[in-house]
Design a protein around this nucleic acid. Structure first.
Length: 236
DNA sequence: GCATTAATATGAT
DNA sequence: ATCATATTAATGC
């Protein structure tokens, strides 16, 4: 079986993005200001729903402060977390046009969110075409996130999924310390299980296993990666 | 190998 | 003290 490409890079380690999204604005700060100028800011309490899976979207959202997750669930109450969006990212934008939302948007904490009407977005783009690129950037992130998770869910086992999400999190919100790379957000096992599509006890078991083999250290709800090599090795 | 369920333990407020 | 979260064990697919 072919494991490496001609240039030696590993397969399956495409690394644009993570299910934890911190910022997709980048160089489009001016365009963001134009888009938000007529988009009211709303405060949502923790656990509030911005939009529901299946609803037709007439508006999308920009998270100024706080956290909003996208979840998919079935009739039996099983829940998959598609992504967690932090400050400076859009959510609900995949329903632009006449499409319905493929996920539900729920706040994880009290959040300040700009509500952007699709009609406003369209007229804004007509006046300032570059505004489209701002949103395209966000949509790209979602496309890549979906592809990465497709790979995880179809091709990887529990341990590999956990290793992968830890690598993604360390790329997105990791901080180098003397002890290793610390993931700078507290994550409950429930959230990590939701992100990896695993049952919570399974997730707990894998994390404990990784700690026993000196790959990570757990501190209340923080995770420090002390052996990045071993962690990425789990994926090959 | 992993999900589900339940029982128990630990931690946060 | 109470509620949320984490761990561990038992069982089944």
């Amino acid at each position: 079986m072919i494991r490496e490409k001609d240039d030696g890079r590993k397969r399956g380690l495409y690394s644009f993005g993570s299910p934890y999204v911190t910022d997709t604005v980048g160089k489009y700060q001016r365009e963001l200001a134009l888009l938000l100028s007529e988009s009211p800011l709303r405060i949502y309490k923790s656990g509030e729903i911005l939009f529901d899976q299946g609803d037709i979207g007439n508006r999308f959202y920009f998270i100024k402060k706080g956290k909003v997750m996208a979840t998919m669930s079935n009739q039996h109450g099983a829940v998959k977390i598609v992504a967690i969006h932090a400050s400076n990212s859009f959510i609900g934008d995949t329903a632009l046009g006449q499409h319905s939302h493929y996920a539900t948007g729920v706040t994880l904490q009290e959040s300040e969110v700009h509500v952007i009407e699709n009609s406003h977005f369209e007229s804004c783009v007509k006046r300032h075409p570059k505004v489209a690129f701002l949103v395209i950037e966000s949509l790209l992130r979602k496309a890549c996130n979906a592809a990465l998770q497709l790979e995880d869910l179809s091709l990887r086992n529990a341990k590999q999924r956990v290793a992968h999400v830890l690598i993604e999190l360390s790329n997105e919100i990791g901080r180098e310390t003397d002890g290793g790379v610390e993931i700078e957000e507290k994550m409950t096992h429930e959230i990590l299980a939701g992100l990896t599509g695993l049952a919570r006890p399974t997730l707990t078991g894998v994390l404990n296993d990784l700690e026993r083999s000196n790959v990570i250290i757990k501190k209340n709800r923080l995770i420090i990666i002390i052996d990045e090599k071993k962690l990425s090795h789990i994926l090959d």
